[in-house]
């Protein structure tokens, strides 16, 4: 007998270990749910980690009000199926209440506004650990993120003063008012996630699969036609067969021309693609260190 696990099962075992560690070490954890494939996989892993008990923490979705309708429907179906608790933090409400100000102009996005709403929800719910589906291969600032990432009372990340993380010992000790961000799928790559979703036959929103949609090009990215994005005159609509590689706010999620309409074809496409998955995210393109800057302030 060869006692060797394959890489997907080893990654799964690691993530389950982290999820259980969070349930054991924290009083009031919450799982940040974006509707994207990574957070769908997180929910799937959490369901496995605590079976036959229910997931012992609620899901928190910060809704920009600019989500694809498919995302919201998928979220509600998933929550119902698992019998999980869902909390929705609304960016629209925060705008209406004058707590945050909507960006103006052509590339206006509510992406940045999520941070304030997220921090407010975390404080309101007195959550001491917020689980996120970020991966280290996504972006260079995330390559240095810990599994257990300590945040001060302002929710800020201090990349130069992170706790060293050794073996499988995770230090979740904190003072009053501080909290942790925890990233159980840190070691997964985009390809790992897709292979695992296929292996486990996890249900996914239709946006990930090739479909016909009216799109236009801006700064090398294809964006979906929606009333919430202002189009320049020269930006003409075309119908194309596209799919999303990441799903976020409609204003900043690019779509890709692709005819991958099954998981197998998506895996094939990703194994051979030469562009990163966040390459279509206009929020990352604002500056070279825009992810690091946003993370320091408390972004996912």
């Amino acid at each position: 007998m060869d006692y060797q696990m394959d890489h997907l099962r080893e990654l799964e075992a690691e993530s389950i270990y982290i999820l259980r560690e969070v349930a054991a070490q924290f009083e009031k954890p919450v799982l940040m749910f974006s509707g994207g494939k990574d957070s769908i996989m997180m929910v799937h892993l959490a369901a496995k980690a605590f079976w036959p008990a229910r997931i012992p923490f609620p899901l928190l979705h910060v809704d920009t009000g600019h989500n694809f309708p498919e995302t919201i429907k998928f979220r509600d179906d998933l929550v119902e199926r698992l019998g999980a608790k869902l909390i929705v933090g609304s960016v629209q409400d925060a705008i209406d209440a004058g707590k945050v100000r909507e960006e103006k102009g052509l590339n206006a996005s509510r992406n940045g506004l999520q941070t304030g709403v997220l921090l407010e929800e975390l404080e309101k719910g007195q959550y001491d650990a917020a689980l996120g589906g970020a991966r280290r291969d996504e972006e260079k600032a995330r390559a240095k993120e810990r599994f257990f990432s300590h945040r001060d009372e302002f929710g800020q990340w201090d990349p130069k003063n992170q706790r060293p993380e050794l073996w499988n010992l995770f230090n979740g000790q904190k003072s009053m008012g501080e909290h942790f961000r925890v990233f159980p799928i840190s070691n997964w790559t985009e390809l790992d996630v897709w292979q695992y979703l296929a292996l486990e036959k996890v249900e996914l929103p239709s946006l990930y699969f090739a479909h016909k949609r009216k799109v236009f090009a801006r700064a090398g990215t294809l964006l979906a036609d929606t009333p919430i994005i202002q189009r320049r005159e020269e930006e003409v609509l075309e119908e194309k067969t596209v799919r999303c590689r990441t799903i976020g706010d409609m204003t900043c999620t690019g779509v890709w021309e692709s005819d991958a309409d099954t998981l197998e074809k998506i895996i094939q496409e990703i194994s051979t693609t030469r562009m990163t998955e966040r390459g279509g995210r206009t929020d990352d393109k604002r500056s070279e260190t825009s992810m690091e800057d946003r993370k320091k302030q408390g972004y996912f």
């Binding site: 060797q4 696990m5 394959d6 890489h7 080893e10 990654l11 292979q195 296929a198 292996l199 998981l263 197998e264 895996i267 094939q268």
Partner: peptide, 9 residues
């Protein structure tokens, strides 16, 4: 294809 077994190092 999805069941390719690879080890983690």
């Amino acid at each position: 294809m999805t069941d390719q077994s690879t080890e983690l190092l």
